[in-house]
Design a protein around this nucleic acid. Structure first.
Lengths: 119, 119
DNA sequence: CTAGAACCTGACACTGATGTCAGATTCAAG
DNA sequence: CTTGAATCTGACATCAGTGTCAGGTTCTAG
């Protein structure tokens, strides 16, 4: 599929898809004329990338992580090195703290919303 | 207490504390010489602000929200307007989606970490 | 009084993913 | 072939909180 369709199906802008490629996160075949062509699996890949970005991971970490992930089209093509495992564990703990913060913020919002609802 | 201590106790930089004040999020008394002086409750307030920033709220929303919050030193000093409630509800839903994304990313990381652990 | 730590304001830089625009090229349907 | 939609590259802008530095003032302990 081409970039426009991939953008539509993932909700990610074409700009971002090209950026992901420049960052080495998303490969693409090229037509003879130089247009990008993606396999079906690219949809899942892009969604994953988005999730990881949202979780606060930087391009470099995602780039290291991607080959170790269980992909839709087959198993992981690499095993994380001890160094990477340490990094990912730190990221995971950070995500845990993030979630805890978000839950607290959600409670704060709910209190204010409920207080207004009682009025 | 003064800005240095508040920074130490909250883990927030002095720079950020001054920024919060400029944004109307954090009030301060002033010594005759112009130095900031904070009440004890400022510690909690700063922590809350940090959490809300981490949840993706912008200064303007936090500014509207703060007066409606149940503070440590007394009840809320304002009730959210319907308009604000609508905004906060949207924020809350966004936070829900954020949490769901984070949980998925955490699972992804755990899979990779575990896969390396089995080796 | 004095020295050094702490604080003040104001300004500029940065981060890093994303938006946007320009000008050129490719693709696909008629 | 033609034409309009889609895509290409490259460059610059943006956002918003935070880091950092400069030059000056205030505070406090000795």
């Amino acid at each position: 599929m081409r970039i426009g369709e991939l953008a539509r199906r993932t909700g990610v802008s074409e700009r971002s898809l090209r950026y992901y490629e420049a960052q080495g996160l998303l490969a693409s075949e090229r037509t003879p004329g130089g247009h990008r062509a993606y396999p079906e699996a690219a949809v899942d890949r892009v969604v994953r990338i988005q999730e990881l970005y949202a979780a606060g991971l930087h391009s470099a970490k995602i780039r290291q992580l991607l080959p170790c992930m269980r992909d839709q089209d087959g198993g992981p093509s690499a095993i994380a090195t001890p160094r990477l495992v340490a990094d990912l564990t730190a990221e995971r703990d950070r995500i845990d703290r993030m979630i805890a913060d978000l839950v607290r913020s959600r409670e704060t919002l709910d209190e204010v919303i409920d207080a207004a609802g009682d009025a």
